[in-house]
Design a protein around this nucleic acid. Sequence first.
DNA 1: GATGCTGAGGCAAACGTTTGCGTGGATCGT
DNA 2: ACGATCCACGCAAACGTTTGCCTCAGCATC
Lengths: 333, 333
Amino acid sequence: MKSKRVSITDIAKELQISPSTVSRALNDTGKISEPRKKEILDLAKKMGYRPNPFAKGLVQNKTKTIGLLIPEFTHHFYSRMLEGIESVTSKAGYQLIICTSNEKQKQEIKACQTFLNSRVDGVLATVCKKNEKVDHLQEIINSDIQLVFMDRQCEELEASHVISNDFDGAFQAVEYLIKNRYKRTAHIKGPKNLSTTFNRLMGYKESLKKANLSVESELILESDDPYLLKENLKNLLMEKSIDSLFAYSDYLAYDAYQVAFEIGLKIPQDLAIIGFADEPISQYISPSLSTVNQKPFEMGAQAAQILLNQIKNSETPCEYISLQTELMIRDSI
Amino acid sequence: MKSKRVSITDIAKELQISPSTVSRALNDTGKISEPRKKEILDLAKKMGYRPNPFAKGLVQNKTKTIGLLIPEFTHHFYSRMLEGIESVTSKAGYQLIICTSNEKQKQEIKACQTFLNSRVDGVLATVCKKNEKVDHLQEIINSDIQLVFMDRQCEELEASHVISNDFDGAFQAVEYLIKNRYKRTAHIKGPKNLSTTFNRLMGYKESLKKANLSVESELILESDDPYLLKENLKNLLMEKSIDSLFAYSDYLAYDAYQVAFEIGLKIPQDLAIIGFADEPISQYISPSLSTVNQKPFEMGAQAAQILLNQIKNSETPCEYISLQTELMIRDSI
DNA sequence: GATGCTGAGGCAAACGTTTGCGTGGATCGT
DNA sequence: ACGATCCACGCAAACGTTTGCCTCAGCATC
C-alpha cells in the first residue's frame, strides 16, 4: 500500500487531458461538461486522490487554519470553550493550531510568532493575565490576520470579542445575596489587568449601591498573593464582620471554603458564598457551590463563527458580543 | 503596514545573489561563507522575512504538524495530557491539529480523514470507546504516517503506545483495601472494549487472588447503563454484602457516593471507596476521594517524544510504555 | 457564405522553496 | 608550475495547483 501520492497530473495523464481540466472538475468551478466532470471525479475517487494542501496554499495564499491561543486547558471553562470552537471550525473545514500561554506573556508572544509563521487565516485568543504590552497582538492585526478575543477583552486593540456579561453576572449574584437578607458581602477580586476582574467588581459595587448599601473598600480583597488573601479573609471572618462573599472565580471560592472550615464556620449558615464560572467541581464539593454559569461552549462557538465570517469577508465590521450568564443556586447560600 | 510578503527571491534580488544561496544561509545547510551568511541573515531580519510553509512543505513533503485525536477535553485527564503533548511539540517546532471524537466512531473516522488530507507527519490518538473497526487507523499507518496511542491501547494495530500501568494501579488499590482489613470489595467496570477496563479488572481480580479471596462475579458491576448500575449498587449495599469498592474511574466513584448517601451510609465507615484518574474534583468532594494518579502530563509528553523520534527516523521500532501509577490515599478509606 | 458568439478545454506562468549538479576560482600537494 | 581538491555559489528543475488567456469547433445570425 505504500503507493505514491496521486496528483492531479496523474489523473490528467490517465485520461489524456490537461491538469487544468481536472482541477476545474474537482473544484466544480465551471467551464466543464457534465460527462467529463463525472468521468474525472470517478477516476479521482478510484485512484484515491487527495488534494495537496501545500500546492493549493501556495497558489491561493489561504491556509484554512486558525490559531487558538488559550492560557491553559485544565480549567473546565477553557476546555469547554475549545469544544465549542472545534464544533464550528471542523464543520467549516478549518483546522486549529493550538498554543497555550500558561498565563505567561513570553509564551503568548511566541504563540503569535507561530501564528504568523504558519500563515493562519485567523486567530482566536484569550489573552493572559500579565500582558503589559500588546505589540504582538497588534502585529497579528497588521499582518491582515483576523482576530477575535474571547472571555477577556483587550481594549487597546480594535478587534471583535465574545465575552460574558461579567457585570450583570456579578450584579445578579450580589443582588441574590442581598435579597436573601445577607447584610455585609465581601468580594474577592480577580487578577489585575483583566477586563473580567474590573467588570465583576463593578457589578458587585453597583448591586450594593442599588440596594442603598455602602461600598466598603476593606471588604474588597486582592487575590494576587494567595497567602495574603487567606490571612485577610481569616481576619474578616474572625471579626464576624461579613456574612457573605462573592468571589471572582470558583477556585477563589474554594479558598474561602478552606478558610471558613479552618476557623470552624459553617457554610452557608455563617458565611454564604457565590463563585463564578461553574466549574464541574462546584456541584460535587460540599456544600455545593452556588455560582455563575458562563456558557463557555457558546462563547467558543460564537467567537469561531464571527472569525469565519471575518475571514470570508474582511470588510465585516467588528462584533462585540456579551453573553448572558446564569445564576446557579446550590447549597452554599 | 499592508506590505507584501517578502520572499527568498526578494532578498536574493536585493543582494544580487541567487535564491539558492539565500536558502542555504537561512537553513544553515553548509556551503556558504560566514560573512555572506551574516549579511543575508541580517537583511532577512530587517526585511521581516518569514519562510512560506507551503512552498517548503511542497518541496520537502514534510508538514511539521501532528494530528491529535482525543475523545474530549473536559476531563482533567485529557486536558492535562494535552498540556504535556504541547510542551514537547511546541519546543520541537511542530504544530498540533486537534480533533475530538466525542467518543463517537463516526467523528473519529472523520478526524482521520482530516489528518490524511492535511498530510500530518504523525498522529497521537486516544481511541474512542465504541470502536468496532479500526480501518481508519490502519489507513493512517498504511499512508506511512507515524502513529502513537495514548492511554488506551489498540491491540489490532502495530503501533507504539504510552499507557498507564492499569493492572498495577488497580492491584495496589485493592491490595490497600485488603490490608486495611476490608473483607469484601466490589468493582465497577469501565466501558466495554477498552484495554483500560480489562486491565483494571484483571488487577482487581489478581489482587483478590493473591490474598486468597475469591472473585465473586456478583461483585463486579457493569457501568454502561448508569441507572442499572445505581440500582445494582444500591442492592449490594442494602444487603450489606460489601464494605468497600474499587471503581474504574473517579466519576463512577462519585456515583457510588451518591448511592451511599442516599441510603444513609457513611464513607469510609460503611463503605470505603477508591477511584481511578485523580480528577481535581476528588480532592474537594467530601470526604475526599482516594484514587490512582495516572500522570497524564508525562503520558502526553512521552507519547509526543516517541512520535517525534519515529518521524525523524521511520525505522525506529515501536515502543510500548507503561507508566507507573501512584495511589493517592485520602479520606474515602 | 462570411461573421460573430459561445462553450469546452489546453497552455503556460506563477506561487516560494529546496537541491543535485555544474563551474570557476582559490588552495594544496608534489 | 601543474594537476587535484575543495569551497562558495549559481543554474534550473521540481513539488502540485490554480488561473488568465488562447484556441478551436460548432452554431446562429445576417
